[in-house]
């Protein structure tokens, strides 16, 4: 790793001004599990790191009304094991638990997993499915950004220079609704998603009221399969319907070929994972909430 200077501000405003001051020469370090890998491999070159370690208030999971608020520095393992999260959005716990290794999950943070904007990241699909938003601060003002508007491209987000993602806010999931996360990986541990799907279904009586299908690792950003999602609204659930929706999701996916899988294979995986997640989500939604 090249030399750099570490700044350890003790308040968020201080962190934002440091980021503004050093611009593209600075990066935020939270858990560091993505950043240090990039620095060690010289994928990025910077001269300043702004550590969030000494800033209070970013490490807790709280509930306000029906909302869950997760601080950006909450570790992936804390997310995976949080009873609060498990009760309301089990898919997020599962997504966190499926990541990397115990060591990395103890180090890595939810904020980092989102802000790094790696296309195969595990938490964003479940969060998009849940309709979550993030709180971004510039030190002087805060803004709320829906997760669905957060990503621009691989490693590109709406975060402006001087801005920090401080919280993830998960709204109430609602009754008769279930969210399921499915991921395909090439080995048991320490493996990135080759493809992933987070599916949300709300049922009303015998019908599906609405649904949302979010795809991971098959596009430059975690993407909502809009057409596939729309096919669910107001429909009578059936094997046939779910099969067609899964086909539609695969058609919408825009994967690339790389060492983990070809474009065609990823599309097939999306179809399989979508179908499985629809089946499971429907089952759980009719069983009463996630």
């Amino acid at each position: 790793m090249r030399d750099f200077i570490i700044h350890e501000p003790d308040n968020i405003g201080g962190a934002c001004s440091l980021l503004l001051e050093f611009g593209t020469q600075a990066r935020i370090i939270a858990g560091g599990t993505d950043l240090l890998v990039d620095l060690k491999q010289h994928n990025i070159e910077i001269s300043h790191l702004v550590s969030l370690a000494k800033i209070g208030g970013l490490k807790s999971i709280t509930t306000i009304g029906d909302e869950i608020r997760i601080g950006a520095l909450v570790s992936l393992n804390e997310v995976a094991e949080s009873l609060t999260v498990k009760k309301r959005l089990r898919a997020l716990c599962k997504a966190a638990a499926s990541m990397a290794s115990k060591q990395i999950r103890n180090q890595g943070t939810i904020g980092g997993n989102i802000a790094s904007a790696v296309p195969s990241a595990d938490l964003p699909p479940a969060l998009l499915a849940a309709g979550a938003h993030v709180i971004i601060t510039s030190g002087e003002s805060e803004r709320k950004v829906p997760m669905s508007n957060f990503f621009y491209g691989p490693r590109k987000t709406v975060l402006a220079v001087g801005e920090i993602l401080t919280q993830v806010v998960i709204p109430s999931i609602g009754k008769k609704t279930a969210i399921i996360y499915k991921k395909f990986k090439l080995r048991g541990a320490n493996a990135l998603a080759v493809a992933s799907v987070a599916t949300r279904i709300t049922v009303a009586g015998n019908l599906i009221k609405e649904g949302r299908i979010v795809l991971g690792a098959v596009a430059p950003v975690p993407m909502i399969a809009e057409l596939a999602s729309e096919m669910l609204a107001g429909q009578i659930p059936s094997h046939n319907l779910f099969f067609r929706v899964a086909e539609a999701a695969a058609a919408e996916a825009k994967p690339i070929s790389d060492i983990r899988g070809s474009r065609e294979y990823r599309k097939e995986l999306i179809q399989v994972l979508t179908k499985q997640s629809l089946d499971e989500a429907f089952k759980r939604a009719t069983g009463g909430g996630d």
Binding site: I6, E8, I29, G32, T33, L36, V37, L49, S51, A53, N77, S101, K102, Q103, I104, N106, Q107
Partner: peptide, 16 residues
């Protein structure tokens, strides 16, 4: 172990 939790020390900055 860092405060009892396993971590990969190759991805931790000593200064932190």
């Amino acid at each position: 172990l860092v405060d009892g939790e396993t971590m990969s020390s190759c991805l931790l900055l000593a200064a932190n």
